[in-house]
Amino acid sequence: MRIENLSYNNAQSQGPERREWFRTHSAEHLERCESLMQLALRRRPASTASSVVVLGAGNCTEVPLVTLNRGTDELVLADLDLAGMRRACDLQLPNLGQRRRMRLVECDLTGGVSRNLERLIRRQRWDKLAPQGASAIFDAAASCLEECEVPDPPVLDDLGQGQFGVVISSLVMSQLFSYPILDVLDPIIVAAPDFWGEQERHRRYQEAAQAFRLRVINAHLHLLGSLVDQDGLIVLLSDVRGFAFNVYGTDHDASHRRDIPLVPRAFFDLVKEQFTIAEEQHWEWLTDLPEKEHFGRGYEVVGYVLRAK
Rank of each mutant, 00 (worst) to 15 (best):
G303F: 09
F164W: 02
P264Y: 05
S35I: 03
I189H: 08
Q274D: 09
H29K: 00
G84K: 02
T72M: 11
A88F: 08
R100N: 10
I137A: 04
G112R: 06
L171S: 05
V105E: 04
R43G: 01
P64R: 03
L236D: 10
A83T: 11
R115C: 05
N69Y: 00
N95A: 13
D288H: 13
I137N: 02
D73K: 09
R119C: 08
H256R: 11
P16C: 05
N95M: 06
F195T: 11
R32I: 07
I181G: 00
T276H: 13
P94G: 04
V63S: 01
C144M: 09
G56R: 03
E291H: 11
E149C: 11
L306K: 05
D288F: 02
F295G: 00
Y8T: 13
H220S: 11
R101K: 15
L221C: 08
A244P: 00
L80C: 08
Q274N: 14
P45A: 05
H256G: 01
R122H: 13
D253G: 01
F267E: 00
E20V: 10
S226C: 07
D90A: 15
V190E: 15
Q38H: 09
Q163A: 15
L289W: 01
L75M: 06
F275Y: 15
A88D: 08
A57N: 05
E17M: 08
D79F: 09
V105R: 04
L221S: 07
L286S: 07
Q12L: 15
I181K: 06
F177Q: 06
R99G: 03
L270E: 13
E147D: 13
C107L: 09
Q281L: 11
L270N: 03
G56N: 04
E106S: 14
I121D: 01
R215E: 02
L39K: 08
C148A: 15
G112Y: 07
Q199R: 12
A254I: 12
L82W: 10
V302E: 11
L214G: 00
F275P: 03
S174I: 05
R19I: 02
R258D: 10
E146W: 00
L286C: 08
A83G: 07
E31L: 10
S51M: 01
W126N: 09
T276L: 12
Q38D: 12
G56D: 04
R99D: 02
T67W: 01
H25T: 05
L289M: 11
G160P: 10
L286V: 11
A141I: 01
R297W: 14
V166Q: 04
I188Q: 02
A130S: 09
V302M: 09
D251M: 08
W283E: 06
L289K: 10
H256D: 03
P131G: 05
C33D: 05
A49R: 13
G165A: 04
E62K: 03
R2K: 08
A254D: 12
R119T: 14
S135D: 15
A278G: 10
D152A: 14
V166Y: 02
S174P: 02
P131H: 04
S255Q: 10
E147C: 09
A78F: 07
H282Q: 13
R265F: 07
R100V: 12
G197K: 04
E279D: 14
I260S: 10
M85G: 07
D139M: 03
V167H: 03
Q175T: 04
N10F: 14
R44C: 12
